[in-house]
């Protein structure tokens, strides 16, 4: 069971999974032949090459003791959530409210959440991004819910 948690073992399995997906999804693309390759030629070659790398990595894991390092799941969740919120709100309610949301959501990655500091940061970044992107570069970006 211990060997299953080794970093290189999981890395090798990940290679095999990606390789299998690439070959499986690409089976509809025509293969062609060497003097006139179709769009499916390279995907297959790369899939096979990647699976060889995956197997070599798994074999290499036998001698390695390296475990998977811990990752900051909290930061992962809130940073990603912040970016996605920004992506889906900026066209609807404009850049300034979306900026406000992005800063506050991504600041949740760290505890404690300092409300006043984050508030100050988000307001000054709203001002800064207005000055750079709208005032300075004249980018056609919607600013707030009541603009264009």
């Amino acid at each position: 069971m211990k060997s299953l948690l080794k970093r290189d073992f999981i890395a090798g399995i990940a290679c095999l999974v990606i390789a299998a997906f690439v070959v499986w999804y690409g089976q509809d693309y025509s293969y062609g032949n060497l003097n006139n390759m179709g769009p499916g030629y390279l995907p297959r070659i790369l899939g096979i090459a990647l699976s060889i790398c995956g197997i070599l990595t798994i074999l290499g894991a036998i001698n390695s003791m390296e475990r998977v390092p811990r990752i900051n799941v909290r930061a992962l969740v809130f940073v990603t959530l912040g970016i996605l919120t920004f992506a889906f709100t900026m066209n609807r309610i404009g850049m300034l409210p979306a900026t406000f949301l992005l800063i506050h959501i991504s600041a949740l990655s760290e505890s404690p959440y300092r409300i006043f500091r984050t508030l100050a940061l988000s307001l000054s970044l709203c001002l800064l991004s207005y000055l750079i992107f709208i005032f300075g570069l004249n980018m056609p970006i919607r600013l707030h819910p009541w603009s264009f």
Binding site: V79, G82, I83, L84, F86, A87, F88, M90, N91, M95, T99, L102, I103, S106, A107, S109, T118, L121, S122, L125, S129, F133, L137, M139, P140, I141
Partner: peptide, 23 residues
């Protein structure tokens, strides 16, 4: 870091004006 994330998001958006690039 929140500032970095913000500038990355606006930066990538402004290339094609596409919110899907931010996704």
């Amino acid at each position: 870091y929140p500032s970095i994330i913000l500038f990355i998001a606006i930066g990538v958006y402004s290339i094609n004006y596409s919110h899907l690039d931010i996704v």
